[in-house]
Design a protein around this nucleic acid. Structure first.
Length: 836
RNA sequence: GGAUGGGUAGUCUAGCCCGGUUAGGAUACCUGUCUUACACACAGGUGGUCGAGAGUUCAAAUCUCUCCCCAUCCA
C-alpha cells in the first residue's frame, strides 16, 4: 500500500502557511456566548498579557512565552472549554515617547502635543504590525479579529470610567508628598518603576563646626584617653560624609549612631552647616552606619527614601531643594539657585575646597536609584499627585493571594513579599503625554476638581471642553474650567485587562459568564506591578479576585544564563528563527526547554535540535500512513502481547501528559511524548511488529475472520500502531499544532481539525484502568536490553561473505529468554532469529 | 545586606519534595552501519569526586548544618 504521505520531510515553510490560512478561513478558534453549543460549555478566559511594542527586535523569550500561552488555550479547548484567548497590544506609556523622540529627533515638550501624539501613533503602528505578524506566524489561536489596543478610545474610556468610579468611592486623593521624580522624563514615578545601579561617585567629607558648651565640659579623663589612642580629631568639628553635597542647604539634621563612641559626646549638640552657616541638631539614630564614611550623616530633603522617613520620624521641616525641572531653588541662596544638580554639586564642592571646609573626597560606588525607563538618577521632590489607595487593601490582597492558585506555587512568594513592603499608596498621575488622560477639569473660580460622569465616554481635558458648565462645588457658571493635562501611570490601563476582555460595564451577560477569568499568564518580573495592580483594581471594582489561577513563566536568558537586554546587546530576534526552523520547531523548543517557572536558555543550536523530533514524528507518520487504519475507536477482540505491552506504556504517557497539562507545565508532556515516540514506540515497538504489519492482504482487509492467526496478528498490530500514533498526535497537538494537523487530516480525518478533538478519550481512560495490562510495563527494560544485546551481537559478528559486521536483516542464532517468551514470535521476526 | 531560584560529564538538563540496583536524557565528540518510514537515521563508545566540607543513616545527588560560587528580584 502506498503511504498517504509522500513527502520525505516536514517542510514547515510551505505547509505551515497553508494550514494557517485554513484555520483562519474556518475560524476554528471561535468563541461565542450566543452559540448554544458553546454557551453550555464552561468559559475559559485567558487574561493575555498585551505586549508592549517598545522597539526592534522583539524578544525571543517573549515569543516563547506567547507560544506557551497559546498551549494553555489549546489544552483548554481540547478539554471542552469555551476558550476566549484575547490578543491585545499595550500602547500607553513612556517607551514610545522616548522611541519617538529619538526616531524623529524631536523633543516632546517643545512641540505641539497633538502632533507629538500623532507621531507616537505612527511609530506604534509600525512596531505593532511586526508583532502581530510574528504572533500569527507562531500559530497563536487567539482572537486576532478583535484585537484590542490599550490606547483606543474604547479602552481609555474604560480606564477613565473605572477611575471616576474609584474617585466616587473616595479611593483617590490628591497629596503633596515627596515622591520619586525623574527629571529627564519630567514626571513622578512609582516605586515599582525604579531600578538600582552601582554607579561610581565621590563621597565628600565636609567639616561642620560644633557649637555647644558640652564640648568643652568634657572631662580630663577622656582627653587622656584620646592622647593615648593617637586621636588627633578636632573636637570643635564633626566630619559629615555625603554623596549628595549639593543638598547641603536642605540639611535639617546630622545623625550619628547611638552606639558610636566617637560621637557619643556630641549627641544633642548642634552643628553649623559649612558655606550656609545654619545650625542643625546632631541626633542619634540607628540608621546611621558607623562604618560608612565618617559615621555622621546629614539628613536633607531629600537625598533618598531614608531621608523622607527621617524627616517624618524626627518631625523636621522640609526645605524644598529642587523644583520640578530638577533645578535648585531659592533655598540654595543666590549663589547656587537655578542650577542643575550636577552644576550645583561641582560648584559647592569647589567652594568647600577653597574655603578649607572639605576634609577629603573618596571614590566609591553607590547604589543609585534610577528611572527604569530613562536610566536617569531619580530625585525625591515634593509634588502634588493623585494617589489610589492601596495600603488599606493589603490585608485583603494577602488573603486572596493565598486563594489564587499559582503555577508554580513558589512564585506566590514574590507577591507576598511585595505586599509586605508596601508602605505608600499608589501615585497614579504622570506628567507625560502618551497615556490615558486623567479626566478632571478644575474650576477657574474655586479650583475644585470636577469629574465627568462615568458614562463610558473618552475624555481629553487638555484639549476638550468639559461636559458640564457649572462647578459642582462653588456653583459658578461663567468662569470656565481648566483641563488637567497629566496622564495616568500605564499600569492604570493594563490593570483592568480582565475587565476589558470580559466586557465589564458593556455586556452584563458576557461579564457574568466570563468573570472571574480562568487564568493570568505572565512573566515573573512584573508580579510586583501588573499582577499586583490588577488584583488591587479588580478587587476595588468588583470585590472579586480577577482570576482563578496565575501562571508565571521565567525569563528567556542568553546562552550564558544572563538576562537579555537591549543594553547588553544579547537580545535574540525571534522572527528569523521562526522563519528558518518553522513555528512548530520553535514551539517544541519552547516547551521542551522551559521548565515551568524557571529561566530557560535561548540558543539557536538547541532550537535546531528540537527540529529533529518533528522530523522523526513526520517519518513515523509517513510510515504508518501506508497501513490501513483499523478500529480507530474500538479495539479488536484479541491483542497480541507486544501490542498490549506498548498500549500499557502508552497509558503511562497519557497519565504523565495529563499531569503536566493540568499544571500547564508543557515541559512534561513535550519530553514524555518525545521519549516515548522516539525511544520506545519507533525504536522498539515498530520494529517488533513490522513483520505482522507487512503480511499481505488476502482479502479486502475488513474481514473479521479472527480464526486466522496471521490476520488476527495483523489486525492487532495495525490497530495498535494507529492507536498509539493518533494518541500521540492528540497529546502533543497543543504544542506543535501545525505538523499534527497535517498528519491528522492526512491519516485520520480529512474533514475535521484535530484542534477541536477531545484530548483525553474514553478508551484511553479504560485502557489506564486495566491493571493486568498495566503490569506489562514490567517487561519494558527486558525488551530494550534484549534488542540491544542482539544488535550488539550482530555488530560484533563479522560476516564470512562480506568481511563486514552482520547486517540487521541477517539471521543470527540467539534464543529468546524465557522471561520474554510471550513476545517470542515478534522478536524472532524482528531480528531474524534462527534459534527455537 | 535581605529574599528567591540554581550549582549533576565540554555544554544543557532530568532525578531531589517522598533517601535504596551500574546517576537517566539531550547535544557535542569518536567508531561502525543504507536495516521493508527516517543518514534530520540506526547501533555502539569515550566522558561524572552529583559546588566544598561535616553530620544523620545499614544506605545520601536526594535529609540536616556550615561555607563557596552563579542568576534574578528587593533594600
Amino acid at each position: 500500500m502506498e503511504p498517504k504521505i509522500q513527502s520525505t520531510a516536514w517542510n514547515p515553510e510551505i505547509i505551515e502557511k497553508a494550514i494557517l490560512k485554513k484555520w483562519e478561513e474556518e475560524d476554528i478558534y471561535h468563541f461565542a456566548i450566543d452559540d448554544d453549543d458553546d454557551e453550555s460549555k464552561p468559559a475559559f478566559v485567558i487574561d493575555t498579557p498585551p505586549p508592549y511594542p517598545s522597539g526592534r527586535p522583539w524578544h525571543i523569550g517573549a515569543a516563547a512565552h506567547y507560544a506557551q500561552i497559546d498551549m494553555i488555550a489549546r489544552v483548554a479547548r481540547m478539554n471542552g472549554k469555551n476558550v476566549l484567548f484575547p490578543i491585545g497590544i499595550d500602547r500607553n506609556g513612556l517607551p514610545v515617547e522616548i522611541y519617538t523622540e529619538k526616531k524623529y529627533k524631536v523633543r516632546m515638550r517643545q512641540m505641539d502635543r497633538q502632533k507629538f501624539l500623532d507621531l507616537c501613533k505612527v511609530a506604534l503602528d509600525d512596531l505593532e504590525a511586526e508583532m502581530i505578524q510574528i504572533m500569527k506566524r507562531m500559530g497563536l489561536s487567539g482572537n486576532f479579529k478583535e484585537y484590542y489596543r490599550t490606547d483606543s478610545d474604547e479602552y481609555r474610556a474604560l480606564t477613565q470610567a473605572t477611575f471616576i468610579e474609584l474617585w466616587k468611592r473616595g479611593l483617590v486623593y490628591l497629596a503633596n508628598r515627596p515622591n520619586n521624580y525623574c527629571p529627564d522624563c519630567g514626571t513622578t514615578i512609582a516605586d515599582a518603576e525604579i531600578v538600582y545601579n552601582e554607579i561610581p561617585t565621590k563621597l565628600i567629607y565636609m567639616k561642620f563646626k560644633v557649637t555647644t558648651r558640652k564640648n568643652k565640659e568634657r572631662g580630663k579623663e577622656e582627653e587622656e584617653k584620646k592622647k593615648k589612642n593617637n586621636d588627633n580629631t578636632d573636637d570643635t568639628l564633626i566630619i559629615v560624609a555625603s554623596t549628595r553635597p549639593e543638598l547641603l542647604y536642605a540639611c535639617q539634621a546630622v545623625i550619628v549612631n547611638p552606639e558610636d563612641d566617637r560621637y557619643k559626646h556630641l549627641q544633642g549638640a548642634r552643628a553649623i552647616l559649612p558655606l550656609f552657616n545654619r545650625e542643625v541638631s546632631i541626633v542619634p539614630h540607628h540608621s546611621a552606619k558607623p562604618e560608612f564614611g565618617s559615621g555622621a550623616v546629614m539628613v536633607c530633603s531629600y537625598g533618598d527614601q531614608n531621608d523622607v522617613q527621617l524627616f517624618r520620624e524626627l518631625g523636621l521641616k522640609e526645605i524644598v531643594a529642587l523644583n520640578e525641572n530638577g533645578f535648585t531653588t531659592e533655598a540654595a541662596g543666590q549663589q547656587y539657585a537655578g542650577l542643575r544638580v550636577n552644576q550645583a554639586r561641582t560648584k559647592i564642592v569647589e567652594d568647600l575646597k577653597n574655603a578649607g571646609l572639605m576634609e577629603k573626597e573618596e571614590s566609591i560606588t553607590h547604589r543609585t536609584p534610577l528611572c527604569e525607563r530613562s536610566k536617569t538618577p531619580i530625585e525625591i521632590i515634593a509634588l502634588h499627585d493623585y494617589y489610589v489607595k492601596q495600603i488599606e487593601f493589603v490585608p485583603q490582597l494577602k488573603e486572596l493571594a493565598f486563594k489564587l492558585k499559582f503555577h508554580p506555587d513558589m512564585h506566590r512568594q514574590i507577591l507576598l513579599k511585595w505586599l509586605d513592603s508596601i508602605n505608600i499608596d499608589w501615585p497614579v498621575s504622570r506628567r507625560r503625554f502618551y497615556g490615558t488622560e486623567i479626566p478632571i477639569w478644575y474650576c477657574n473660580t474655586c479650583k475644585a476638581p470636577n469629574l465627568p460622569p462615568s458614562d463610558g465616554k473618552y475624555y481629553r481635558p487638555w484639549k476638550d471642553k468639559p461636559p458640564f458648565e457649572k462647578c459642582a462645588k462653588c456653583g459658578n457658571v461663567g468662569s470656565g474650567f481648566t483641563g488637567e493635562d497629566r496622564t495616568f501611570d500605564t499600569w492604570m490601563d493594563s490593570s483592568i485587562s480582565p475587565l476589558y476582555v470580559t466586557k465589564f460595564d458593556k455586556d452584563k451577560k458576557m461579564f457574568d459568564y466570563a468573570y472571574p477569568t480562568a487564568i493570568r499568564p505572565q512573566a515573573k518580573d512584573i508580579i510586583r506591578t501588573w499582577l499586583h495592580y490588577t488584583m488591587l483594581r479588580c478587587v476595588q471594582l468588583t470585590g472579586k479576585i480577577p482570576w482563578h489561577e496565575a501562571w508565571i513563566m521565567g525569563y528567556g536568558v542568553d546562552e550564558k544564563g544572563e538576562k537579555m537586554s537591549k543594553s547588553k546587546g544579547n537580545v535574540i530576534d525571534p522572527f528569523p528563527v521562526i522563519q528558518k526552523y518553522g513555528a512548530d520547531t520553535f514551539r517544541f523548543w519552547s516547551a521542551s526547554e522551559a521548565n515551568l517557572g524557571y529561566d530557560f536558555r535561548c540558543s539557536e543550536q538547541r532550537i535546531a535540535g528540537a527540529q529533529k523530533f518533528l522530523s522523526k514524528l513526520w517519518n513515523v507518520g509517513r510510515f504508518l500512513s501506508s497501513f490501513e487504519v483499523i478500529g480507530e475507536r474500538k479495539a479488536p477482540s484479541y491483542l497480541e502481547p507486544s501490542d498490549r505491552w506498548i498500549l500499557a506504556e502508552l497509558a503511562r504517557v497519557v497519565k504523565e501528559c495529563r499531569r503536566g497539562y493540568s499544571e500547564y507545565n508543557f515541559f512534561v508532556p513535550a519530553n514524555a511524548i518525545r521519549d516515548f515516540t522516539w525511544h520506545l514506540f519507533a525504536a522498539h515497538y515498530i520494529e517488533m511488529v513490522k513483520g505482522r504489519a507487512y503480511i499481505a492482504n488476502t482479502d479486502d482487509g475488513n474481514n473479521k475472520n479472527d480464526d486466522d492467526d496471521e490476520k488476527r496478528g495483523k489486525r492487532s498490530a495495525l490497530y495498535t500502531l494507529h492507536r498509539c500514533f493518533s494518541t500521540i498526535l492528540l497529546l502533543i497537538a497543543p504544542v506543535i499544532p501545525f505538523i499534527v494537523e497535517e498528519l491528522w487530516t492526512k491519516m485520520y480525518s480529512s474533514e475535521t481539525t484535530i484542534h477541536r478533538q477531545a484530548m483525553f478519550r474514553k478508551e484511553q481512560e479504560e485502557l489506564e484502568e486495566i491493571e493486568e495490562d498495566a503490569e506489562m510495563t514490567k517487561y519494558t527494560k527486558a525488551i530494550i536490553d534484549f534488542n540491544s544485546m542482539v544488535w550488539n551481537k550482530k555488530k560484533e559478528t563479522i560476516s564470512k561473505e562480506t568481511g563486514k559486521p552482520l547486517s540487521l536483516k541477517d539471521p543470527i542464532d540467539i534464543p529468546v529468554p524465557s522471561e520474554l517468551e510471550q513476545f517470542g514470535q515478534d522478536l524472532k521476526a524482528m531480528h531474524n532469529l534462527t534459534a527455537r
